[in-house]
């Protein structure tokens, strides 16, 4: 296979990864790194470098697509971003010292966990408690967002310290695996801090790009970002995710989500197996 064929194939596979990642909300990174390493035989650190770049592209692209950011909370995002960006730098350094097997095993666990989560997505907007947390008040981790009927629904973050800790883990995973860790970020904001789901998802999207940029810098200066590999991947994922975002409301998407979740489980098992067998 020559460079042109390789690049075109890479572009196509990345486009599919971006499309499915946008439909499921898991992001392209979770399928990209396994696809690059398992099917294209790319060294895992090159794969992570290329994936990080595409994560920045989709995060910024998606945010630009729904600019009406009435839902995202910039203070919550910036407070938690301290944890994710420092975690991401730590994770990027960690990737430099651990073995390929270790990366494969952690990746496998995260894939299976993400798939399990995507089966469990909630549909209702449940009741939120109005007891203001003292730390959250000081840090101004509250706000309001527009309800469908035009009124404003106010909220206040709970357990900010725990949320901060979960975000640190999300950052480490992002730097170590080259993924956006959107699923972990939403858990932190949605489950731990009890923020409304729409606020969690849009704020998470803002944070993903910043977190990925924090680890991408380390990968860049270490030489893990190969432009000839990262370019077709980034263009493919960006194009695929923009198309995917437009089909979020389609009826056929539900079945596709199930197929995608099963694919992720299969990739996760394969990554785990390779990791246990020594990353070969």
């Amino acid at each position: 296979m020559n460079t042109l064929e390789f690049s075109v194939l890479l572009f196509a596979v990345s486009g599919l990864a971006g499309f499915l990642g946008a439909l499921t909300g898991l992001g392209g990174g979770v399928v990209l790194v396994p696809a690059l390493t398992l099917f294209f035989g790319v060294d895992v650190k090159y794969a992570i470098g290329a994936s990080l770049v595409s994560v920045i592209a989709t995060s910024s692209g998606a945010a630009a697509a729904y600019v009406r950011e009435g839902f995202s909370n910039i203070r919550v995002g910036m407070f938690l971003e301290i944890a994710t960006s420092l975690g991401a730098i730590g994770g990027a350094y960690l990737a430099g010292v651990v073995t390929t097997s270790f990366i494969f095993i952690v990746f496998g666990i995260v894939l299976i966990y993400s798939a399990w989560l995507s089966f469990q997505r909630r549909h209702q907007e449940e009741h939120r408690s109005e007891t203001p947390n003292r730390i959250s008040k000081v840090l101004k981790l509250d706000g309001s967002y527009p309800a469908p009927d035009g009124s404003q629904i106010s909220y206040c973050a709970e357990q900010p310290i725990w949320g901060f800790g979960v975000m640190g883990i999300a950052g480490v995973l992002s730097g170590l695996l080259g993924i956006g860790s959107g699923a972990v970020k939403v858990i932190g904001m949605d489950h731990v801090m009890s923020l409304p789901f729409k606020v969690s998802t849009t704020t998470s999207n803002f944070m993903i790009g910043v977190t990925a940029a924090a680890s991408a810098g380390i990968y860049f200066s270490r030489g893990y970002i190969d432009p000839a590999l990262a370019t077709p991947v980034m263009l493919g994922v960006l194009g695929g995710s923009l198309i995917g975002a437009r089909h979020l409301m389609d009826a056929k998407v539900k079945a596709l989500r199930t197929v995608f979740a099963l694919t992720i489980v299969a990739l996760g098992v394969e990554m785990l197996y390779k990791g246990v067998m020594g990353g070969k």
């Binding site: 770049v53 920045i56 803002f206 910043v210 990925a212 940029a213 980034m234």
Partner: peptide, 17 residues
């Protein structure tokens, strides 16, 4: 040139911050 484009991409969220 490709690497320069990728650096521009990394700079985008930094500019946002």
């Amino acid at each position: 040139v490709m690497q320069f484009g990728l650096l521009l991409l990394i700079a985008t969220p930094i500019a946002r911050v």
